[in-house]
Design a protein around this nucleic acid. Structure first.
Lengths: 332, 332
DNA sequence: TTGAAAGCGCTAACAG
DNA sequence: CTGTTAGCGCTTTCAA
């Protein structure tokens, strides 16, 4: 930077202001300094800048998975919302319980980022406090962190809409396939979707026998097994609501292998509107995933005082997508 | 750090050495200092450390897409290989031609990372030089960067194996669906796979009429259209080699909508072994994707002098996966 | 093995 | 609007 100052015949501080986009520099000077900097192929050292200012110019994102459709799409949206700002994006993953506790004990983002986004991981108040306790804002994408900004959908409402679609078709024996995380527990979204299912069933005065509540580890395999289990019950359901499309895809596989036709013999509903849902003609509840990332970026920037509208909570709409795997039950 | 030094009754420099894992500190001291640091909940400032040492403790990764199976899986592998080291991972994406040139003119990773991994983007020698010219090592994952470390597969060999599988089944009229990037050009992997296809065809003395070479933008839609185009030719092929599974999935969709049965009426080969390939019973060429990320991490560390075995080039094996979409042509 | 001290390259008062 | 200057919190010689 000294070189630039010398070359432009101005003081170091003026260069700093010009390059930092700070006020207090005439446009004329600023333009000249920018030109000189470009010519010298100069780039500000983030380390020095960070040391002096206390800001890192980066945000972190913590995800439970990188290579799943939902999470990578959120990441893509986040990156998209951040690119223009010049903020860097630091990627942290905590998949297993061990990794998660390692993350919480090491807090590797400390002093590294100005703000942190947490994607689809439900944290206790204590855990949230542990993150936010370092003076940086923390936001939740697809998960509510007590007292922090949030963007996501209304999972319960989406699930209820899905189940109402089934009851409207005439189904009364509607099962659910719940999904568990790698730790074997139910995530927050799962809990909410389940709540929506129970609620919509109760609205119609429909019973939910225990045998109609299946649980499976997230994924195609889990869904396939859960569906097999449901088919084996003494009085199989006529419709199944799956807490995620990946699970529904597994359910469809079991159906196909049992020579049952989705829609005709048994209706299947997913949730998410995964890319493959369209291909497999799967009825589902669509949620705007990339938008959640993009809005997450906005919230991050707003929290850093760089954004426009700061909102404590953004709830995006879901949309019922009716395709071929749902239809009225036979012999109604 | 001063606090820690005071608390531990040692000099600042000793604390620095102890925390940095540098030699020249008695084990006794080191243990005590570490204990004090933990108790004080102290974490080294990466900014200050970076300013003083010139190292950032972070690596960058440049991907063309975040939300595609291949790329997110590579990212997952990279993250996995890096987590233990404490190195941070900075995510850069350049999707369109505009974003790519913006990346090259801004070089946002400058002074931010100690090394850069480029995933599946073929760069010219000039572009590679522009990246490496900042004194940091650059490695290519699934793309060769002139003069830099590389990890990937032998695309041509994989494609040739796929085509040989088809010729061994008795096919002679074998078409190919090529995939173009968002810029409309062929990527390096596409070029190599096409080369493998031509080579395997030539080996068997088989003709490749122009009508048997279809091109489509990457993705399901593109594949569907390309397949429709192939079916419309005066003498349709009996088998189609697709440069990627996503494209093959689109091809299968067109087949289904044309009431043709994959395998029986027309054989379809993919490439990559996407998660969905198994579900759709698609024959394909499997490549170890997560491993490429993991080994990419090793190469980065080796380039920084922190790794073990440094190899200039790692070529991972591909594996032919025969499923239901390929079979001998009818009426052979 | 330990300590003292000189920067690393910026930002942000403060003064002009 | 511009310049001067004092740190920011470390790493790393160099000396002891």
């Amino acid at each position: 930077m000294a070189d630039v100052a010398r070359s432009a015949q101005v003081a170091l501080s003026t260069v700093s202001r010009a390059l930092g986009g700070k006020p207090g520099v005439s446009e004329e000077q600023r333009a000249r300094i920018l030109a000189v900097a470009r010519e010298l192929d100069y780039a500000v050292s983030p380390a020095a800048s960070g040391l002096a200012s206390g800001r890192t110019g980066a945000v972190g994102v913590l995800v439970p998975h990188i290579d799943r459709w939902f999470h990578s799409t959120v990441l893509a949206g986040l990156e998209d919302g951040l690119r223009e700002t010049g903020m860097d994006l630091l990627l942290y993953r905590a998949e297993s319980a061990g990794e998660r506790s390692a993350f919480f004990s090491a807090l590797p983002f400390r002093r590294r980022v100005d703000a942190l986004a947490v994607v689809a991981i439900s944290l206790s108040e204590a855990e949230t406090a542990a993150l936010a306790g370092h003076g940086i804002p923390v936001i939740g994408i697809s998960c509510r962190l007590p007292g922090q900004r949030f963007v996501g959908i209304d999972d319960a409402a989406g699930a209820a809409a899905a189940v109402r679609h089934l009851t409207n078709l005439g189904h009364r024996r509607i099962a659910v396939i719940r999904t568990t995380t790698v730790t074997g527990s139910y995530g927050a979204a799962s809990a909410e979707r389940y709540r929506g299912y129970r609620q919509a069933m109760a609205e119609r005065g429909l019973e939910v026998p225990d045998a109609y509540v299946a649980s499976a580890p997230w994924g195609v395999e889990g869904g396939a097994e859960a569906m097999a289990q449901l088919l084996a019950s003494s009085r199989p359901p006529t419709a199944v609501f799956c807490e995620s499309d990946e699970v529904a895809i597994g359910a469809l596989r079991t159906l196909r292998r049992s020579n049952l036709v989705p829609g005709r013999d048994l209706s299947v509903m997913g949730f998410d509107d995964h890319l493959m849902a369209d291909l497999l003609d799967l009825s589902t509840v669509a949620q705007p995933v990339q938008d959640q990332g993009r809005i997450g970026a906005d919230l991050l920037l707003a929290a850093l005082g760089r954004g426009e509208a700061d909102r404590p909570e953004v709830v995006l709409p879901t949309r019922l997508v009716v395709r071929g795997t749902t239809a009225s039950p036979q012999g109604r």
